[in-house]
Nucleic acid binder design. Structure first.
Length: 289
DNA sequence: GTCCAGGCTTTCC
DNA sequence: GGAAAGCCTGGA
């Protein structure tokens, strides 16, 4: 990456950084624990920390942090070791992806906590982003620990494994996903699914293992692989990816499995990036709706 | 074994 | 009232 780091009191400034826009990163649908502030900065909660991210001219300002956390948490979280310029250049050989990458020019694929990502995407099934965000916040408030102010950490698998589904439904508003959350947490807590071990598996093996969890099908498994394990050849197909793919590349009523196969074939090792640029592009512009 | 229709909580537009 | 970053179940 081509940027300079300046450390100030409780702030890290990434001078002249390219391919980094908080709006694209947080509003592209990969993360749910963020709030847009009045100054257009984003306050996020991740890895038991509260961080504010602001874009100012060509710089990114990370507030409420320090160099140690930057090195041990945020560098990896924001995937700062990767050259997104090169990814966009390669994807832009396809005219549709050229449009999509220009639209989401500051997007980066985060490396998020595996358990939080798993539960978050179980909640995402047949749901809407405002409600997904609300449910995750309520789970943190009711089962997590207070970090500072009104910000709470996401609970551990152990804590959620002991939650009452009724409370998840009635207090945290998760609807029919209640039992799926508790049962998946139990399996992870007991080690029936080795969540951390997914990192060492091939994408196919990882997907198969994740789908053992109740509430995790092919789409959710793909999102977990992509947003928590950096397995960037995953190509999760949801309603928006289906719409954009049918609109530009494939005929109507292609089943999701075929769309996923097509994505793999067309975009190869960059399929996960392509998927996210396409999703963001399609959803923001309402393509295919 | 694969494929598909219908049902599922609740909220948001 | 329809749709929502889908999954699960049962039946063909």
């Amino acid at each position: 990456m081509n940027y300079h780091i300046i450390e100030e009191k409780a702030r890290i400034i990434l001078k002249d950084i390219r391919d980094f826009d908080p709006k694209d990163i947080f509003e592209c649908g990969q993360a749910f624990r963020w709030n847009l502030e009045e100054d257009n900065s984003y306050t996020i909660v991740a890895f038991n920390r509260v961080l504010n991210v602001k874009k100012e001219d060509g710089d990114i300002i990370l507030s409420n942090t320090n160099m140690e956390d930057f090195n041990t948490i945020w560098y990896n979280y924001f995937d700062l070791g990767r050259d997104y310029g090169a990814i966009k250049e390669e994807l832009s050989k396809d005219p549709i992806l050229k449009e999509a990458t220009e639209f989401g020019q500051g997007l980066r694929i985060l490396n998020q906590d595996p358990f939080e990502t798993t539960i978050s995407f179980i909640i995402s099934a047949n749901n809407q982003i405002p409600r997904i965000k609300k449910s995750i916040d309520l789970i943190a408030q009711n089962y997590g620990e207070r970090i500072e102010g009104d910000y709470y950490s996401f609970p551990t698998a152990e804590v959620l494994s002991k939650a009452d589904p009724k409370d998840l439904r009635e207090i945290c508003r998760v609807g029919f996903r209640d039992v799926r959350i508790v049962e998946s947490s139990k399996m992870i807590h007991r080690g029936e699914l080795d969540l951390k071990g997914i990192r060492d598996l091939s994408p196919d093996e990882g997907k198969k293992a994740l789908m053992e969890l109740p509430g995790v099908g092919p789409k959710v498994a793909g999102c977990i692989l992509l947003f928590a394990f950096n397995k960037v050849d995953a190509f999760p197909v949801d309603v928006w990816v289906r719409r954009v793919m049918e609109h530009f590349y494939l005929k109507k009523n292609t089943n999701n499995k075929k769309i996923e196969e097509y994505g793999h074939k067309k975009f190869g090792k960059l399929a996960g990036y392509a998927q996210q640029y396409l999703f963001y592009y399609a959803r923001e512009l309402g393509i295919g709706k």
